[in-house]
Write a protein that binds this DNA or RNA. Structure first.
Lengths: 347, 347
DNA sequence: GTTAGCACTCGATGGTGTTGAGTGCTAACA
DNA sequence: TGTTAGCACTCAACACCATCGAGTGCTAAC
C-alpha cells in the first residue's frame, strides 16, 4: 500500500485534532471538521489503511484512532522541512527579559520559568558546557584573617569562587602580589594544566608556601569534583494538567525523574550538540518517558560554549508552537550571553 | 468535660495509628492494639468525648475518627516538652555529608535532597539571611578588555560577583589601586551606606570616573533588585505517595506552590526567627496547605546569619522522626558553616 | 464505670443494563 | 473504481442497585 496525498492530509488532520483535544479521533470528526467533501465511510477506509501502515493506533475497537510515534515523527519532520512557522504568541518571549538580570544562574532559572509558562509544558535549561576553559586571571581577596577568596577568571567567564585558608599574617597586598605572579605564570593554561604546573611554581616561589599550598589543594580538589552544570527546571506541575498523567504512579515517576538533575541533564543533552532535536516517545531512550516528547535547542555564549534548552511534554505536544518558542528563546539567550544587544552584563 | 489521663492515652494511640496507616481509626483498633484492657465500647465513649472536645473528627458516621489539628498540636507539644527523642535512623545524616562540598549553594541543594530522602516528605532549605552585611573588601578583577569582575566581601561572606564595564585602557594594577582605596574608604559600611557614599567618593577620586561610575551603577542596581535567597527544594514527588494527595488538583496546586520559590521562602520563613517551629494545617496560614504541616529549624553561619530548613508533609506526619532529623540536620549545617569540625572550606 | 448486644449508617465493592461513539463490512451508486 | 449509505457489532463509560462490612450510638445488664 502506498501513502498518497490524501492519506497525508487525513493523518495530519488526525494529529492536529488529537493534539488539540487529547481524545481518540473518529472518522466522523475528520469528515465534518477537516475533509468536509469526504464522507466518514471514506475516511474510515483511509484510516484503516493508515493503521496498517503503522501511523495510527486504536486503543479499543470502538474508540477513534490516535497517532503513533511514527506519525508524530512524520508530522514533525514535515513541520521542520517547511521551516519554523513563527507563532504569533511567541513574540512575548522578548518582553520577559526586559529586566536586567545579572547572574548566569538567574538567567537560566528565569528562562526555565518563562519557557514553561509560555509552553505550558515542563522546561529544562542547562548551563553552557564547552571546551575546557583557559585561565585568564587569578586573584585572591582577603575575606578574614586566615582565609582568602579565590577568584579565577577564564576565557569563558568566572569560575565560582571558593575560600581557602591562609596564614593570618598574609595581608591583602601580599595576596595581590602572589596573584599577579600566578596570573602571569598560568595565563592561558587549562585548569588541569595549572594543576600540574603548580607544584613547580610553589617550589620556585618560596616564602608563601602556605598560601600556595592552600591554592594547590583548591585546584586539585576542584579537579576531582567537577562542577556539575546548572540545571533549571520549570513547570513540572504543568504535566499534571494533561490527562496522560492522571495516573499517579506515572506522575510520581516523572516528577522524581525531574528531581534527579544529573540524570535529567544527561537525558536533555542526550541529543548531542545538534542545534535542534525532537525526540518522540521511545526515541527519548528513557523508558519512563515512553509517552513524552523532548524538544531541545541550543544557545551559545561568548566563549563558544553551548547550552541546551528543552521542553518536555506529552507526545501529543503542540510541536510547532514549542519549536518556534524554543527557537526564539535560543536566539534570545544567545544574544544575551554574547552581548549582541549591546547590553551585556553577564559574566 | 475534662481531659483525663486515659483520654490522653487514647488520643495519642489514635494519632499514632493514624500517622502510621492514614485511615480513620476505629474503636476496635484501639481496643485491640493499644488499650487491650478496655473494650471497644469504652473506647467508643471516650472517643465521643474527645470529639466533643474538638480533638477528633469523623469523616462519616460509619468511619473511624481522625485527629484534628488541635489534636496534632497537643501531640506535638507533648513531644517537644518531653524533649526531642533521638531517632535511631537519624544518625545517617552525618554520613551523607562525608564528601567535602564547597559552594554554599551546593551544600544547600544537597541538604534538601538528604532531608527529603530521610523523611520521605518534601524538604526546603533556605540560604542564610541576617542583618545587613557590612563591607570588608572590594576588589575588581580584570575579566577582559573593557570589563571587570567586582567581588565584594562582607562580614557575612562573599557577595555574588558581577561584571561591570570599564574603559579598555584600565589595567589590572589600576583596578587594584582603586579597589584598595575603595576598601579603605568603605570598610564597615552597609551596602546601602556605600551606595550613598559613592557619589561623594567619585567626586574626590577623579581620573577614574568611568570605573567608579560603572561600580556605582552596579551598587544602585543591586539595591533595587535585592538578591533573593537561594531556595532548595527536594522530594516534591514524595508528596504524591500519600493518599492525601491522590487528588490531582490538590497535587498540582501543591507542586506549583513548590515551584514559586519566593512564595515558598516566605511561607517557610513565616515562623520568624524561632529555632524550632511546627505549624499544623491551618496554622501554616496558607489556604493551599490546609492539610499540610510544616516543621522548621534554623542553622547559623559564622557571620551569625540564620538559615532555615523545613519539612513539609501531610498533617499526618511522623512528627517525632521529622523533628529529630531536622534537629540533627540543623546542627550539622551549623557545624559545617561555622567550621566547628575544623574542616571549614565554605564561604 | 464497664461491657455486651443491637439497630443503624454509609462508603466501598461489584454486578447489570443502557447509552453512544465508533468501527468494519456490504451493497448500491456515480 | 472510488465513494457513500446503511447496518450490525463492539466496547468503554455511566448510572443504578444490591450487598457487605467497618464502625457508630444507644441501651441495658453487670
Amino acid at each position: 500500500m502506498q501513502m498518497d496525498d490524501r492519506k497525508l492530509r487525513i493523518l495530519r488532520a488526525i494529529i492536529d485534532d488529537y493534539i488539540l483535544t487529547g481524545v481518540p479521533v473518529g472518522s466522523r470528526t475528520i469528515s465534518r471538521k477537516y475533509e468536509t467533501n469526504l464522507s466518514s465511510a471514506t475516511i474510515r477506509n483511509e484510516m484503516s489503511d493508515l493503521e496498517e501502515l503503522g501511523f495510527l493506533d486504536q486503543p479499543h475497537v470502538s474508540a477513534g484512532r490516535i497517532p503513533s510515534a511514527k506519525a508524530y515523527r512524520l508530522y514533525v519532520d514535515s513541520l521542520l522541512q517547511a521551516g519554523i512557522i513563527p507563532d504569533n504568541s511567541a513574540e512575548s518571549v522578548l518582553s520577559h527579559f526586559s529586566g536586567r538580570v545579572h547572574q548566569m544562574e538567574d538567567v537560566i532559572d528565569h528562562a526555565a520559568r518563562v519557557l514553561s509558562s509560555l509552553t505550558q509544558y515542563t522546561a529544562v535549561v542547562l548551563s553552557p558546557k564547552g571546551m575546557e576553559p583557559r585561565l585568564q586571571t587569578i586573584q585572591m581577596v582577603p575575606v578574614s584573617a586566615g582565609s582568602a577568596l579565590v577568584v579565577i577568571v577564564t576565557d569563558q567567564g568566572v569560575i565560582r569562587d571558593s575560600v581557602i585558608h591562609i596564614s593570618p599574617e598574609v595581608d591583602g597586598d601580599t595576596l595581590y602580589a602572589i596573584s599577579r605572579t600566578l596570573t602571569n605564570e598560568l595565563r592561558g593554561c587549562t585548569l588541569s594544566g595549572a594543576c600540574k604546573a603548580l607544584p613547580d611554581l610553589i617550589a620556585r616561589m618560596e616564602g608563601n608556601d602556605e598560601v600556595l599550598r592552600g591554592l594547590y589543594g583548591y585546584f586539585t580538589e576542584g579537579q576531582q569534583q567537577p562542577r556539575s552544570p546548572h540545571v533549571a527546571v520549570g513547570g513540572t506541575s504543568n504535566m499534571l494538567s494533561y490527562p496522560e498523567y492522571s495516573d499517579m504512579d506515572k506522575a510520581r515517576t516523572f516528577l522524581s525523574l525531574m528531581e534527579t538533575r544529573d540524570k535529567l541533564a544527561d537525558i536533555i543533552r542526550g541529543s548531542g550538540e545538534l542545534a535542534f532535536t525532537v525526540r518522540i516517545g521511545p526515541e527519548t531512550g528513557v523508558p519512563e518517558m515512553a509517552d513524552c516528547s523532548i524538544v531541545t535547542a541550543t544557545y551559545s555564549t561568548r566563549g563558544g560554549q553551548q547550552g541546551t534548552i528543552g521542553v518536555i511534554g506529552p507526545t501529543r505536544m503542540r510541536y510547532s508552537r514549542v519549536i518556534s518558542i524554543l527557537n526564539m528563546m535560543g536566539h534570545e539567550l544567545t544574544d544575551m550571553f554574547t552581548g549582541d544587544n549591546g547590553d551585556g552584563d553577564q559574566k
